[in-house]
Design a protein around this nucleic acid. Structure first.
Lengths: 308, 308
DNA sequence: GGCCTACTATAAGTAAAGCTTATAGAGGCC
DNA sequence: GGCCTCTATAAGCTTTACTTATAGTAGGCC
């Protein structure tokens, strides 16, 4: 528990002293510039050299020269202090309770149902709101590399640590058929259907597609991979056009929003499987926002599906 | 002189404490993880909040929640500390007296004379050496944006501060003529020559070309802009091919390295002008390296021109 | 509600860090 | 050499940061 990964060998103050020496060229001038005395500067820099175990200044020449390591430290320390100086003003922007910006990933199949409520809520907590629809796999990468603050999708990234997860919906996979077709009631009827009609697939790039593929294998089904799509709309539209049947979820059908389409959903024969929709964020970075957002998502989805 | 641009409202230590709280979820656990006592953590964070003038933690709920500002600080502080941790190991790489990498810009007209000696020397002070030949104007931009560590060229960037400059050569502009032509001895003879023969120009993208153009205007000459080139080799080769005459410098002719070419140099009539070759680096970042390099450049050029 | 547990805040004392003044030594310049 | 300006070291002091001790508070459990 108490593993100390080596304490930092400097603090920002001593870096500022070092930079002042670099800029003025002498310790005395640096001391004047910083409003301290010359011995304080001398000691500070001696301590810094000691804790780094490196000489930073070449005291044999006048004016003082920096060593190789000193030059490198000057570069990096300058950058570090520059960034540090930006932090406080940025925090102050949040004083009226708003973040400067919040970036949210939203899985395609929830775009229609959630974009508006999410955006309305997020606008109350951030000055700039960015909602990016797409595949959860891409959002996951963006979250881990800090290009996103959180995402709502179908992968909870359970293999990663340092994340917080809020489940806000769970829905069964179901069959989606043209109205003209009769729904299979057993696995063997489903097999027959799959031989007679092409399966319109979600692509294996999407998490949903992967889960459906895995379930099909469990059922012993391996229909040919003839048509696959990334978007819920595309899958639904193809079924509505009578081009085949699909395995999908209620929310995906809602997402497609094709009113009056000649389609019908049916229970998937065999063991039930469902997908869980999860909000994922880096642990504790956003306070209560993730929890509030998942509550909002749950409520919004209840409304969207009940009014259907 | 003693303008203090507001001292930083935190040091790295207090950020580490804050991050530990974020990770563990409680101050007590953070204290254990950091090997300090709980009141120390409590005070540290209270001081941090005070000096920022912001609440970072929401103490009304358990487990502790971060505020909006706290979440933002966690992001930025995490990044800052991550960078800080990289600095010391990087400096240690220089312990054997070598930089991890050094990137040098070299004006085209010195490429032939200086590439080898520079590279040999730089290899002794850096593990990785990058010498980029090109126009000084481009190198200047790269230096200011830290894509280069220093450059050797014909512009000392006098309008910029925070740079150090080392002059290592000065050479007069001179005429370069095909052997078949007689050298003009007066400005009026030069004028006649310019009417009879095209002037092969250095392009106005190059500093040398600009200086030559300016001098021509001072002399009251404005020959048509028929042929212009970026590279010293191109200018010299065109003169050698009898396509006209040029105003250039001894080092540019050396650079072209066209042995036995039917060309001759001559003093430029009228007031003498010369160009100064300067090494420019960000002030004090590289210790004695810029001085040593300019000495080396001076010696190498002496050899190159005397052996000519 | 009342009790228990685990947490946080405050107070007072202490140890350590950092700063100041005073002074000695060293390099550059006339 | 003599002078000026710089840096390093020493001794004392101030401030900071930490510790122990203790009081207060939220949440879980009966």
């Amino acid at each position: 528990m108490s593993k100390n990964p080596a304490p930092l060998p400097f603090d920002l103050k001593s870096l500022e002293v070092f930079l002042a020496i670099c800029e003025t060229g002498t310790m005395s001038a640096a001391a004047r510039a910083l409003g301290m005395t010359q011995p304080a500067v001398s000691q500070s820099i001696a301590d810094l050299e000691q804790s780094l175990g490196l000489k930073l200044l070449d005291r044999d020449v006048r004016p003082l020269a920096v060593t190789v390591a000193g030059g490198l430290l000057r570069q990096r320390a300058g950058a570090l202090i520059g960034e540090a100086r930006q932090i406080a003003p940025m925090l102050r922007q949040t004083e009226h309770g708003k973040l400067p910006i919040i970036r949210v990933g939203l899985v395609d199949s929830l775009t229609r149902a959630l974009t508006e409520p999410l955006a309305n809520y997020l606008a109350t907590i951030a000055d700039e709101v960015s909602i990016l629809s797409g595949l959860t796999a891409l959002h996951a990468g963006d979250l881990l590399t800090r290009r996103l603050d959180l995402f709502l999708g179908v992968d909870d990234l359970e293999t990663w640590t340092g994340l917080e997860r809020w489940q806000f919906a769970k829905e069964p996979y179901c069959l989606l058929l043209p109205e003209s077709l009769k729904a299979p009631r057993t696995v063997s009827e489903l097999k027959k259907l799959a031989e007679a009609q092409p399966l319109i697939r979600f692509s294996a790039r999407s998490q949903t597609g992967l889960q459906i593929d895995a379930h099909m294998r469990r059922l012993g089904l391996s229909p040919p991979r003839t048509m696959e799509f990334d978007s819920p709309y595309a899958v639904t539209a193809m079924v509505a056009a009578g081009r085949g049947f699909a395995i999908t979820t209620p929310l995906c059908v809602v997402e497609a929003a094709i009113p009056g389409a000649p389609i019908t959903t049916a229970k998937l024969p065999g063991p039930q499987v469902s997908r869980t929709l999860t909000l994922v964020a880096r642990h504790r970075e956003l306070g209560r926002i993730p929890r509030d957002l998942s509550d909002l998502a749950r409520k919004s989805l209840d409304q969207a599906t009940s009014s259907k």
